[in-house]
Design a protein around this nucleic acid. Sequence first.
RNA 1: CGCGGGGUGGAGCAGUGGCAGCUCGUCAGGCUCAUAACCUGAAGGUCAGUAGUUCGAAUCUACUCCCCGCAACCA
Length: 578
Amino acid sequence: MSKKILVAVAWPYVNGDIHLGHLAGYLLPADIFARYQRLCGNDVLMVSGSDCHGTPITVEADKKRLSPAEVVEEYHQKDLELFKAIKLDYNLYTKTTTENHKRVVQEIFLDLLKAGYIVKDTMQQYYSAEDQAFLPDRYVEGTCPHCQAKEQRSDQCESCGRWLKDGELINPYSKLTKNKVALKATEHYFLDLASLVPQLQKFVSESKGRWRDWVYKETDGWLKEGLQKRAITRDMDWAIDLPIDEIMKLEPEKQLKDFQGKKIYVWFEAVVGYLSAPQEWVTLDAAKSGIIWKKNPGQSDKWQNWWLNPESEHYYFMGQDNLVFHTLMWPAQLIGSGRGYILPHNVFVNKFMNYDGKKFSKSRNWTIDSMKMVKKYGVDATRYYIAANLPENKEGNFTWEGFVAAVNNELVANLGNFVNRTLKFFEVNFYGELIAENTARLPEIKIESSKAFTESGELIEKGSFVAALEVIMRYAAFANKYFNDQQIWTVIKKDRKQAEKIMFDLLNIIYDLAIIICPFLPESATRIATMLGICENLEEIDRNHWQSETLQQFKLQQPVEILIQKLDAKVVLQEKED
RNA sequence: CGCGGGGUGGAGCAGUGGCAGCUCGUCAGGCUCAUAACCUGAAGGUCAGUAGUUCGAAUCUACUCCCCGCAACCA
C-alpha cells in the first residue's frame, strides 16, 4: 500500500553558511527518512527551501553592501551546491521569495483573520526618527539604569546581568546607525494562540507516545505555561506584504489603522513553506533549472493528495530552536485556517551538534566547512559519522578524532572490508560470475537478513536513526563472521560446489547491504550495485518493500575497487590547526 | 523555586523495578580471502551524591552538586 508521505524539512535561514550542525540537526535525518520511505514504495514528497526574509538578512546585506535579494541568492546557491554534494534528495528545494509562496501565505493569513484567530494590538517598539525605522531589541544599545554600564543591549545588561524592561535603557541608540531611538507605539496583528489552545491540547495529547518523549514534554510545558498571542507583523521592508486589498474588503475592526510599513513577520511565514512548496512543485517540470526539482516515477501530481488526504502522513525535521514553531505555532496556523490541512504526524527534533564541545559559531570562526569536508573525505564518510552521532536525545559532539575512528574502524573495517573481501574473492576465484543452481539461501542467513531489515525499518520509522545504523552495521559484522566461519578460501580448494553455495549467500548479503545502507550511504550503495550489475543507480531502484530479495545470478561489471577509502589520520587531524 | 533535558566501565551511548548492555578503544589468542582488515576470549563500572519507598532501584520519591537548551524580534 503506497502511503503519501510528506517529508517537511526546516527551511535554512540564508544569512550564513550551512554547517555541520545543520546537517546533523535536521538535514541528514530528513534525507535518511525520505530515502527509506521511498524504498518501502511510499509516495514521498520531500520539500524545503531557503528562508529569505527578516532582519538578520538585511543586517548581513548591509554588512556586505549588497541588497537583501543578492545576499539571499548568494547563500541559496551555495546551499544548493552543498545539498547536491552531500546527496540530499529533495523533490523541491525552493525559496520563500517566490510568488507562489507569497500567495499561499496571504491566503492562510486571510483564512485566520476571517476566522477571528488574528487580532490587533498596540505595542511599544524602539523607533529611530532619523532612520525612519523601527528596530528590533537586539539592535538597540544604551546605558544600563542599574549599573551605568554603557553599550548594553536593550533587553539585558551583560555587566550586571539584570533584565531590562522596555524603556528602562538610558539614552538608547541604534547599534547600526548610532542614531537616537525612542519607544513608539505601533499597531500589529497577533496570532491569538490562546483561543486555539483546546484544539492544540487535543493535538498534542494525541501525539504523546509517538513524538520523542522530550519533545512531548517540552511542548506540554509550553502549553501548561499558557500561550500568549504572538505578533505576526513587523515594521520592516524585507518581508512578505500583507494582502491589504483583501483586508480592506473586510469589516473595519479587522483592519489596522495604518498599514504603512507593516509586513508579515518571518516566523509566521516561513513555516507556510511546507504548504506552499508542494503547490509550487506540481506546477514545475524537469526543464526548470537553478533549483532542485525532482519527480519520482509514478508519483502523484496533486499537492492535495498530501495536504488534504487524511491517509497522508507528515514528518517534520528541525533543530531544537524550532521546536515550538512546529509543535504549536504551525499546527495552530493549520487548525485555524479551517481548511482541514493535515497536522504533523511526527516532529523529529534534534538537539545541537557541538564541535569539540563548543557550539558552532560563525562569528567566532568555530565552524566546519561541510562542502570542503564532503569533497575531501567523501559523501558517505561524512554522512556516516554524522548519522552515527545524531543528537537525537542529547547534544552531540563532532571531533576529528571521532571522525577518523568511526570511518576507519567501523565503516571501512566492517562494511567496506566485507564488501571488498567478498568481491575480490569473487573476482579471483569465480571470474566475477555466478549462476546459482540451488536458489535457496541458508536459513540462518535469511533470519539475520530479515532481522536487519525489520529492526532497522522500525527504528527509522520512529526516528531512531543512530540505533538503526547500528543494526545495519551489526548485520555487516555478522557477514564478516559468516565469511570467517565458512572459510571459503579453504573450501574452494576441495569442494567447488560448496564454495559456490557460500559465495551465493555472500553475494546476496552484499545485495541486502546495498539496499539497507542506501538511506544512509547512497553513494556506496550505488557503487555496489554498479559493480555487481544490479542496476545503474541504486538510488532510483524501484522497490516496494523493506525486505531482502534473493538474486540468482551475479556478474561483475568492472574490476573490483575499494568501496570506502581509509582516512589518513595525520591529514584529517590537520583540520584542527585551521 | 520560569520551562525542559542530561550526569552509566578510557570515549560515545542504550537501558524507566528483577542477575548492568552496545559500538569504539585496551590486552591476549586465532585466521590469512580482505583496505595491518576479519574472528575468538579477557580486563575494565560502588549507574553524580545523600536520604527514602520496595522483597528487590541505574530505573520510583525528596533534597544536593555539576553540565546544557529554551525562556529575550538570533524564524
